[in-house]
Amino acid sequence: MAHILLTGGSRGIGAAIADRLREPHQLAVQATRGDLAADFADPAAPADLWTRALDRLDGRIDVLINNAGVFEAHDLSLPHDEWVAGWERTLRINLTAAAELSRLAVLHWQASGRPGRIVNIASRAAHRGDSPAHWHYAASKAGMVAMTKTIARAYAADGILAFAICPGFVATAMADAAGPATAQADIPLGRVAQVDEVATVAAFCATEAPESMTGAVLDINGASYVR
């Protein structure tokens, strides 16, 4: 039984991951509101969450799944200060919070001498970019992919593994907001991914993926972007 900290677990992909891993594993699930609440717009939140999650999981975390994130449009025509504030908020929530938790996880595993796994939910946007109103979102997800590769290369000898998952449009509120025509426009499969499909890959990386897969970046986008 693994002890797992999952961020962004209240809905969508995160809720599906939680459902997939809840049995037989022990979960601490973060959300902006709820039982293990943390608002990653607050710079103090990641370290505080880590401490509370350790307490919840009896002092041991084996797997960290960084899923929390925001997708907020900020058009170039916005006033400069407002545009910069949106950029900094997205980077703080999507990337910096995940980096802080990943650092704490690596230190935790190094101190204990136990292996560990990090699973980062990134995005197709990390590879192909996003809309003109989402520079910041694409940059945050590209940063997450680069961070995953760095962790994998740096700490494999310690038994610390890292994986990134890059969905395209998924059947969540984000795809709903974009509209079916936009979401499916360039997906050869003819439909967006389902949350259970992403959860299946996340659960595999968290608990079953062979060690030699560390550093892998896995695409779930219906062939809308292939590498």
Rank of each mutant, 00 (worst) to 15 (best):
A171H: 12
F204H: 13
I165L: 15
T207I: 08
A206D: 00
I187E: 04
G168M: 10
A203K: 09
V170I: 10
D219K: 09
A199T: 08
F204S: 06
I220C: 06
T200K: 13
L218P: 03
P188L: 11
G179L: 02
G190Q: 09
M174V: 15
P180W: 09
T172E: 08
A173C: 00
E208G: 02
A175S: 15
A216P: 02
D176N: 11
A216E: 12
C205R: 04
G168P: 02
D196T: 13
T172M: 07
G190T: 10
E197C: 09
G190W: 08
A183L: 07
S224R: 13
V192T: 08
E208W: 09
A223W: 11
A209R: 10
V217G: 07
A203P: 01
V201G: 01
D176K: 15
M213L: 13
G179P: 05
Q194W: 04
P180V: 02
A203H: 04
V170N: 04
Q194K: 11
A203I: 04
E208Y: 11
C166Y: 02
G179H: 06
V170G: 02
D196Q: 11
T214W: 09
A202D: 05
N221D: 03
Y225N: 12
D176F: 01
I220H: 06
A206W: 08
A181Q: 14
V198G: 08
M213G: 00
A202S: 08
S224G: 12
D196H: 13
T214V: 03
P188H: 11
T172N: 01
A162T: 05
S224E: 09
G222N: 05
V192F: 02
A223I: 00
P210V: 04
Q184N: 15
A199Q: 11
A183Y: 04
D176E: 15
D196M: 01
V217T: 14
I187F: 10
A175D: 05
P188K: 08
A203W: 01
P167L: 05
T200R: 14
A175H: 12
P180H: 10
P210D: 11
F163P: 00
G222I: 12
A185M: 12
A171T: 01
I187K: 09
A199P: 10
P188I: 03
Q194D: 14
S224T: 07
A177D: 15
D186S: 15
Y225W: 15
Q184I: 14
A164C: 07
A216N: 06
A223N: 13
P167I: 08
G222Q: 05
V198Q: 00
T214I: 03
G215I: 09
I165D: 02
A177N: 10
Y225M: 10
A202V: 14
I220Y: 11
T207F: 13
V195S: 08
L189R: 12
A206R: 10
E208N: 11
A177V: 03
D186V: 13
G179I: 09
A203G: 14
G168T: 06
V217P: 01
N221Q: 06
S224W: 02
